[in-house]
């Protein structure tokens, strides 16, 4: 599984959405991605990539695209 597939899978699993909803998806744009859903998503991503996200990154994680940016920049995850 590629890193992008793992990343997408985390969203699908944690937020119970379909992959076609991912592009452009923003925090709090859908009911499932509220603060509780956000922490569930972070936990799923941490497990998937074996990382521990900093609090600042959890706060900055405001969209599907921004999340990729953060993982690439701060956790050396290549997409």
């Amino acid at each position: 599984m590629t890193n992008l597939e793992k990343y997408n899978q985390a969203f699908v699993e944690a937020l119970e959405i379909t992959e076609d909803q991912l592009p452009g998806l923003e925090y709090q744009a859908i009911e499932q991605w509220d603060s509780v859903g956000h922490m569930g998503l972070v936990a799923t991503l941490e497990d998937a990539f074996d990382i521990m996200m900093d609090t600042d990154d959890i706060i900055d994680f405001s969209s599907y695209e921004k999340g990729k940016e953060i993982l690439a920049k701060n956790y050396q995850i290549e997409f």
Binding site: G40, A43, T55
Partner: peptide, 10 residues
Amino acid sequence: TQLISKSMMR
């Protein structure tokens, strides 16, 4: 608590 509770949330 902020940090440790992440394990509990999981």
